[in-house]
Simulated scan of single mutants.
Amino acid sequence: MPSTLHETLIEMFRERPALAAEVLTGPFGVSVPTFDQALASSSDLSAVMSTEYRADAVITFLSQGEPVHAVIVEVQLGPIEKKRRSWPAYVANLHSRLGCPVQLLIVCPGASIARQCAEPIVVSEPGLSLTALVLGPDAVPVVTDSVTARRNPELTILSALAHARTKRHRAPVLEAFLAGLDIFDQEHAELYADVVLAALPKAARAHLEVLMTTTPHRYQSDFARRYFAQGEARGEARAVLAVLEARGIDISEEARERIADCADIDQLDVWIRRAATVTKADELFA
Rank of each mutant, 00 (worst) to 15 (best):
S3W: 07
E7D: 15
T8N: 05
I10F: 02
E15Q: 13
P17G: 12
P17Q: 06
L19A: 10
A20R: 13
E22G: 03
E22V: 02
T25H: 02
T25P: 03
V30R: 12
V32L: 05
D36K: 01
Q37Y: 07
S41M: 13
S41I: 02
S42C: 09
M49E: 09
S50D: 15
S50C: 09
V58H: 06
F61G: 03
L62K: 08
S63K: 12
H69V: 01
A70H: 09
Q76T: 11
R84H: 01
R84I: 02
R84Q: 05
W87I: 09
A92Y: 09
N93G: 03
S96I: 01
S96K: 09
L98C: 10
G99F: 06
L104V: 08
L104D: 10
I106L: 07
P109Y: 00
S112V: 14
A114E: 10
C117E: 07
A118Y: 09
P120M: 14
I121A: 03
I121R: 02
I121L: 06
V122T: 15
S129F: 15
S129C: 10
S129A: 15
L133M: 13
G136W: 03
P137Q: 09
D138M: 12
D138K: 14
A139I: 04
V143F: 03
S146D: 11
R150L: 13
R150W: 12
P153Q: 10
P153D: 08
T156S: 08
I157K: 03
A160N: 02
A160L: 02
L161N: 01
A164C: 08
R165H: 13
R165S: 13
R165A: 12
T166P: 00
R168S: 13
R168L: 13
L174N: 01
L174D: 01
E175D: 06
A176I: 12
A193Y: 07
D194C: 08
D194I: 01
V195G: 03
V196M: 02
A199T: 02
A203N: 10
A206P: 00
A206Y: 00
L208W: 10
E209P: 07
L211T: 03
T213R: 15
T215W: 11
P216W: 03
H217D: 15
D222Q: 10
A224N: 00
R225K: 14
Y227K: 04
Y227C: 04
Y227S: 03
G231W: 07
G231M: 04
V240R: 11
V240D: 10
A242T: 08
V243H: 08
E245D: 09
I251L: 05
A255N: 15
R256G: 04
R256H: 08
E257T: 15
E257Q: 15
A260Q: 14
D261H: 11
V278S: 07
K280Q: 12
E283A: 15
